[in-house]
């Protein structure tokens, strides 16, 4: 059998399987990674406290007793929760690809539609009853990582490829997991680039 034949056979997959894969996926929060981040933050705070202690008393010794004691208590806990090198879960060749991390540097959910950058509004209401006022624009076609602004039409920085986008006045509404989310123009200049 040739590879082209296999590609054609794969084309006959059940509609439900094809449809399912075409649906958007929601990024799950990786509590393990968040826990690691929290532990790191704690360690940084402690280290900062240690530095302050040394500075305040003009003592440059690293054996500042007050600051070091809690650090020793924290360190093993952090290691147990997740080794530092495993923190970026998506790079770990793990079997189950457990989840995507809410990594530092993530920015607000945005979508770039018809040459305009929109940002998810913090003020969300029930938009389902206003469905008649929506005008269908298309679907989100691609996604970038959450630390980047989308810059291609029908692109988001959230894994919502396939979600339907509607015009709603000057703003847009995106249907995600059977719920409508309002996105407003990112800045006063209309978000246009």
């Amino acid at each position: 059998m040739r590879k082209e034949d296999l590609f054609e056979i794969l084309g006959e997959l059940d509609d439900s399987i094809v449809e399912e894969a075409g649906k958007p996926v929601r990024r799950r929060i990786n509590w393990k990674a968040l826990g690691t981040m929290a532990a790191c933050l704690t360690l940084m705070c402690i280290a900062f406290g240690s530095f302050s202690f040394t500075d305040r008393f003009g003592n440059r010794s690293e054996e500042a007793p007050v600051a070091e004691a809690p650090a020793e208590e924290e360190a093993p806990a952090a290691e147990e929760e997740a080794p530092a090198e495993e923190a970026p879960v998506q790079e770990t060749p793990g079997e189950e690809m457990s989840a995507e991390a809410a990594v530092p540097g993530d920015i607000a959910p945005m979508a770039y539609v018809n040459d305009t950058l929109y940002i998810q509004s913090p003020a969300q209401e029930g938009y389902a009853e206003r469905r008649e006022e929506f005008s269908y624009l298309g679907r989100i076609e691609s996604a970038v990582t959450q630390d980047r602004e989308p810059d291609q039409n029908f692109q988001a920085n959230d894994p919502i490829v396939g979600c339907e986008v509607y015009q709603y006045g000057e703003d847009i509404v995106i249907e995600i997991d059977d719920r409508y989310w309002l996105y407003v123009k990112k800045d006063g200049e209309g978000g246009r680039r």
Partner: peptide, 25 residues
């Protein structure tokens, strides 16, 4: 999750980089 990745690649012929973006991998 694996099924969706498989179908995106071999049914939709999505680029690996796009799949990685969608699934945060």
């Amino acid at each position: 999750r694996k099924r969706k990745i498989f179908v995106r690649r071999y049914w939709y012929a999505d680029p690996v980089s796009e799949i990685a973006g969608v699934y945060g991998m």
